[in-house]
Design a binder for these strands. Structure first.
Lengths: 137, 137
DNA sequence: ATAATTGATGCAATGGAAGTGCAATTATTA
DNA sequence: TAATAATTGCACTTCCATTGCATCAATTAT
């Protein structure tokens, strides 16, 4: 079990208070968050810092972007099984039309999608929309 | 074979010159277009008019939105097989990382995606990214 | 036919998210 | 301790999406 400090150091990212806080914030959340979410959680910090922290995490495959169709980019920590840096990885995310939350279904893999001749598939973005377990109860 | 006029009238949308032009523009395109694309094609018209025309079309299931992950909403005419108003329809779109164009692959259906217990799938948004037939040649 | 009403269009402005340049601050290394 | 490099905060900018309001065109009622 790596500490957050070790994780950051292993990727040559300097350990700062801000980064630890943002990492912990993301780790506590089960859902994907927007930059505004982070902004609201850290009102003392500057938007730009939060933005750049997330970008740093993204570049180093600590978080990955999720495009759930709401028009606002969301972010979530990469988990054990997350191969979002690998081109052919299939992301599966669920967006709840009721509570508007987006969660990663990392365990649910997607079958290979066939594309017409001449097309080369490099990456697949799949978002299932509907009602999440909390809202359907 | 319905004329555009008939199509609009059947949906209680007034037939205007602008609407006919935009419809024709979309019909000629095989790819999904952004509002800016339409704007560039009709420089004399106001952006708002184009925007609201597309929105009217969207509400009446004449076009559907495509979120291909570029961050900019794209639109394409609903085709014969397009059931984008039906909840369980599976949209499949292909976004070319090279030419940045997005096309509808209406003929390519996707298998039903399984979601965990408690989750209700209403809709699936699937975007395959890669290289299109024109660019891979 | 004309007035009243409804819808379409154009202009101006707003809001939100994403991104950048630069100065100041903090941490690392020489 | 000085020099260097990275991080943070502030101020902007840009781009897309969206709305309010006035005007113009078209439809309906009188």
């Amino acid at each position: 079990m790596k500490t957050i400090e070790q994780l950051l150091e292993s990727k040559n990212i300097r350990v700062t208070a801000m980064r630890l806080l943002i990492y912990k914030f993301l780790a506590e959340k089960e859902i994907a968050v927007t930059l505004s979410d982070i902004e609201n959680a850290f009102e003392k910090a500057d938007r730009t810092t939060l933005y750049r922290t997330i970008k740093t995490f993204e570049e180093n495959v600590i978080v990955h972007q999720i495009d759930d169709g709401t028009g606002i980019t969301k972010y979530a920590l990469c988990e054990e099984g997350c191969n979002c840096d690998i081109k052919n990885d299939l992301h599966l995310h669920f967006h709840c039309n009721n509570c508007n939350e987006t969660i990663c279904l990392t365990e649910h893999k997607i079958p290979q999608i066939k594309v017409p001749d001449g097309f080369v598939s490099e990456n697949v973005n799949l978002v299932v929309k509907g009602i999440c377990d909390k809202c359907s109860g």
